Amino acid sequence: MITRLIDGVDEIVGRIVSIVAIIFAGIIIYEVFMRYVVGAPTRWAFDVTKQLYGFYFILLGGYALRHQAHVKVDIVTHRLRHNARRWTEIIGYFIFFFPFAWVFMTRSYEFAMTSFNQGEVTYGAVQLPVYPLKMAVFVGAVLLLVQGVSEVLKLLLKKADHLEPMEPLDVR
């Protein structure tokens, strides 16, 4: 089924991108060692870690949505019955999520292509190309939009495990 394919792609991307966090941490540890122990800070570590964090953050949007890690307005839906909550989420996707994701995807594509065509680089001690990160923003937007399609299909097909009855909020 299409939802399994989309979920699988986002799962694979999420697992691969999670390795970036290890690389990111390694570079930071290396930079701290070089700066405070050796007394010779690097010229490249700050720019590289900024870009790696950007890759990490933006490419995990679809993975986070797949695992229900995005912010939801549960305070509105927590008292609704299962079916009403399901339809509220479906409507919410169409009113809020899909328009945002579409604009995010189309604008990030334009943003990435402008950067690529200009050969944009960072300014500072080391000039790294910026367009790969901006292209990752576009890829992340596509993954997020497609994962949204998967989530809506699961809701429509009543396969949403994340909509199990919730405990009532204790508002004492």
Rank of each mutant, 00 (worst) to 15 (best):
I2P: 15
I6M: 02
D7T: 00
V9H: 00
E11M: 03
E11Q: 04
I12C: 00
I12P: 01
V13R: 00
R15W: 02
R15I: 00
V17D: 01
V17M: 03
I19T: 14
I22R: 13
I22Q: 10
I23Q: 11
A25N: 12
A25L: 15
G26E: 11
I27H: 10
I29G: 09
I29C: 12
E31R: 06
E31M: 06
V32D: 04
V32M: 09
F33S: 15
F33M: 15
F33R: 09
Y36H: 01
Y36G: 00
Y36I: 03
V37Q: 08
V38P: 02
V38H: 05
V38A: 08
A40R: 14
P41Y: 05
R43G: 04
R43K: 07
W44M: 12
W44T: 15
W44F: 11
A45P: 10
F46R: 08
D47M: 07
V48D: 12
T49R: 02
Y56V: 05
F57Y: 11
I58K: 09
L59Y: 03
L60E: 06
Y63H: 08
L65W: 03
I75V: 13
L80E: 06
L80K: 07
N83M: 11
R85Q: 12
W87I: 15
W87N: 11
T88Q: 14
I91T: 14
I91M: 13
G92C: 05
I95L: 05
F96R: 13
F97E: 10
F97Y: 14
F97Q: 11
F98W: 12
P99I: 06
F100N: 06
A101L: 10
V103D: 14
F104H: 11
T106I: 15
S108Q: 09
S108R: 08
Y109W: 08
Y109G: 10
E110Y: 11
A112W: 07
M113T: 08
M113R: 05
S115G: 07
F116N: 01
V126C: 12
V126K: 13
Q127W: 15
Q127P: 14
Q127G: 14
P129S: 12
V130E: 04
V130L: 11
Y131L: 05
P132W: 04
L133D: 01
L133E: 03
L133I: 06
K134Q: 11
M135D: 02
A136N: 15
F138E: 00
V139T: 14
L143Q: 00
L143F: 00
L144T: 13
V146N: 00
V146D: 00
E151H: 02
V152G: 04
K154P: 07
L155K: 01
E164L: 07
P165N: 13
M166S: 07
V171S: 08
V171Q: 09
R172F: 01
R172E: 01
